[in-house]
C-alpha cells in the first residue's frame, strides 16, 4: 500500500489527540470522584442516576414525615395513658357511688371528683403535640377541638377527617385523629350518648342520689374505660407501624445509596490504572512522532 506523508502524520496526531482527551477525562473523573464529569460523558446512565437520587430524597422525606407524625402519635398515646389512669380512678368512684345506701355528703364529694375528671378529660381531649397541633382535632388541628360550654356541656368543633400524613409510598398515619373516634359515644337506651354527656349525667345522678343513675354510671364508666383501652391499643399499633416505616425507609436508603455509588462513584483503582496506561500510550505516541519526524530520506542521502 502506498502511504502518503500526511497519512502518517495525520494518523499519529489523531491518536495523540484521542489519548489527550481520554487522559483529561480520567483526570476529571479522579478529581471529582465520579464516573463522569458531565452528563454527556455518561449519557446512557444519567437518567437512572437522577431517578435513584430522587428515590433517596423520597426516602429521606419518608423518614422526616415519620418523625413528624410520631410527634403527634406519641402525644395521643401520652394523653390516652393518662386517660386510662383517670378512668381507673373513675371506676373506683363508680364502685363507691353504686353502693347503696351512701351518705349524701359522700355522693357530693364523688360528684365533685367526677366533675373534675370531666374537666381533666376535656383537657386531655384538647392535647397538643410538640408541633402545636391538637392531636384529637383531626384535619382541624389548629383550633381547640373540645369546647367546654358555660352550661357544662361539651361540644366537638374538630373535624371528622384525620390529619393524615403519608409516611411512605403506600401508607398513611394520622398525626391528629378525629376526637370522636377516640372519645367515643356509648349506647344508652338505643341511642348514642357522648362521653362528656355521660359524665355530666353521672355527676347529676351522684348529686341527686338516684340509685338507678349511680348504677347506670357504673356500667357507663366501664364502657368508657373500654373505649379508652381500645384507643390505646390502636395508638400503640400506630406507633409500631411508624417504627417499622422508619426502619424500612432507612434500610431502603442504604440499598439506594449503594446503587447510586455503583452508578456514579468512581472505581479509583481501576481509574488510576487506566490513567497510567494512558500515560504510557501518550508517551509512546509522542516518542513515535518524534522518531518519525526524524526519519527522512534527505538525512540518509546527504
Amino acid at each position: 500500500m502506498r502511504v502518503s506523508t500526511s497519512m502518517i502524520f495525520q494518523g499519529l496526531t489523531d491518536k495523540l489527540a484521542n489519548n489527550a482527551a481520554d487522559m483529561a477525562q480520567l483526570q476529571s473523573q479522579i478529581a471529582t470522584g465520579n464516573n463522569y464529569a458531565t452528563p454527556s460523558d455518561a449519557a446512557d446512565i444519567v437518567g437512572r442516576v437522577q431517578a435513584v437520587e430522587s428515590r433517596l430524597k423520597t426516602l429521606e422525606a419518608d423518614t422526616k414525615a415519620v418523625t413528624r407524625v410520631k410527634v403527634g402519635v406519641d402525644a395521643q398515646a401520652r394523653a390516652l395513658e393518662i386517660a386510662a389512669e383517670v378512668m381507673d380512678r373513675l371506676k373506683e368512684i363508680a364502685f363507691r357511688g353504686a353502693n347503696d345506701p351512701q351518705p349524701q355528703a359522700v355522693l357530693e364529694t364523688l360528684a365533685e371528683e367526677v366533675a373534675g375528671i370531666k374537666r381533666s378529660l376535656v383537657d386531655l381531649a384538647n392535647m397538643r403535640d410538640a408541633d402545636d397541633r391538637y392531636v384529637f382535632g383531626g384535619a382541624r388541628s389548629g383550633e381547640i377541638p373540645y369546647v367546654l360550654n358555660a352550661d357544662g356541656s361539651v361540644t366537638y368543633e374538630g373535624s371528622t377527617s384525620p390529619l393524615r400524613v403519608r409516611v411512605n409510598d403506600a401508607s398513611y398515619e394520622d398525626a391528629s385523629v378525629p376526637g370522636v373516634s377516640v372519645w367515643k359515644s356509648i349506647p344508652r337506651d338505643g341511642e348514642a350518648v357522648d362521653m362528656f354527656s355521660i359524665l355530666t349525667s353521672y355527676e347529676n345522678a351522684l348529686r341527686s342520689g338516684a340509685v338507678e343513675g349511680r348504677q347506670q354510671g357504673l356500667r357507663d364508666v366501664e364502657a368508657l374505660s373500654n373505649n379508652v383501652g381500645l384507643a390505646i391499643a390502636k395508638t400503640g399499633a400506630a406507633q409500631q407501624r411508624l417504627e417499622i416505616s422508619e426502619r424500612q425507609a432507612q434500610e431502603t436508603a442504604i440499598r439506594a445509596q449503594k446503587s447510586l455509588a455503583d452508578l456514579k462513584e468512581l472505581d479509583f483503582a481501576a481509574a488510576l490504572a487506566q490513567l497510567q496506561k494512558q500515560e504510557l500510550l501518550m508517551q509512546a505516541s509522542q516518542s513515535l512522532l518524534g522518531r518519525l519526524s526524524q526519519l527522512s530520506l534527505l538525512d540518509s542521502i546527504r
Partner: peptide
C-alpha cells in the same frame, strides 16, 4: 370543605370529604 360529626353519633366512622 370539612365534615363534622355530631358528638352523639354512635357509629365510629370518620368522614373525609
Amino acid at each position: 370543605l370539612v365534615t363534622k360529626a355530631a358528638l352523639r353519633n354512635f357509629g365510629t366512622s370518620s368522614a373525609d370529604i
